[in-house]
């Protein structure tokens, strides 16, 4: 199964806590997941102040400043992984370095129900 591990943390303190991970450590973990065949993709994100939110209503596009929801913790990166089951996905998530200072939301990827095949 595919799981998306969403890394949430308080941006203001993400890089300044005693347990905060260095980029080197994050890169090394991503490399190890790639090596074991679990990694499908993943990136760290620029802070939310760089975000825009796009909506289309009645055919009209509106673009607003900032993230969709104001929350205490922000989305700071993601890993798309391939895991045997939720237990393996949890094991992958608990080793994502920022799990020590933030939290990781593990979401199964939904298969789109596309008609017209076979």
């Amino acid at each position: 199964m595919k799981y998306l591990c969403l890394v949430y943390a308080e941006e203001a303190s993400l890089h300044s806590l005693p347990d905060s991970p260095e980029d080197d450590e994050c890169q090394a973990y991503a490399d190890s997941l790639a090596e074991s065949g679990h990694m499908l993709g993943g990136e760290p994100l620029e802070p939310v102040r760089s975000a825009v939110t796009v909506r289309v209503r009645d055919g009209k596009t509106s673009v607003t400043d900032g993230p969709f929801a104001e929350t205490k913790e922000q989305l700071t990166g993601f890993y798309l992984v391939d895991a045997r089951d939720l237990n393996e996905a949890i094991r992958i998530a608990e080793n994502i370095p920022p799990a020590r200072v933030g939290s990781i939301e593990v979401r199964p990827v939904r298969e789109l129900q596309v008609n017209g095949e076979g």
């Binding site: 199964m1 799981y3 895991a83 045997r84 089951d85 939720l86 237990n87 996905a89 094991r91 199964p108 939904r110």
Partner: peptide
């Protein structure tokens, strides 16, 4: 079903 909670006895580490 949807989250893939396995039908398994956890491994020693978990």
């Amino acid at each position: 079903r949807d989250a893939g909670i396995p039908y398994r006895v956890p491994e020693k580490s978990e």
